[in-house]
Amino acid sequence: MGIPVFPPRFDTDLLKPFYEGLEKGELRMSACSTCGEFHWYPPEILHCHPEAKIDWRTISPEGVIYSFTTVTRSLLPGDHRDEVPFTVILVESDDVPNARIPSIFMAREGQEAECGMRVRLSPVQAGEHILPAFEAID
């Protein structure tokens, strides 16, 4: 299995705290600084409290796979033929059902992702940057 190498674009700083969390082995999610409600993906405006800021909260690094796909032909801009196949999973942390984090599945030999599979955070380096990745919980 490969790893896609395509750094976060960071048009803004909005998502930087998410990646800084991964560097520390933490899973972080955006929430309203006033009421604590999670908002994922982080929006430009928090509709619950428009004057509030985004507060990054550390959440459970364990969760379940909602769905997945193994990419055999990367459609990322540029030539990424050497990076396939890799398996993308949509992970729901136990703390925030229905908020899905696109991530990489770190498979052990012969293992395949499945819907409903329990997983634990295991960030992975992709060149210079870190990616959200999960491995199955035995």
């Binding site: 395509f6 976060p8 990419v71 990322l76 696109p102």
Partner: peptide, 15 residues
């Protein structure tokens, strides 16, 4: 889309 550029394209979830 900024969110795709930050959260989906890095893990190859694109297209």
């Amino acid at each position: 889309e900024p969110l795709k550029g930050d959260l989906e394209m890095p893990v190859g979830y694109y297209g």
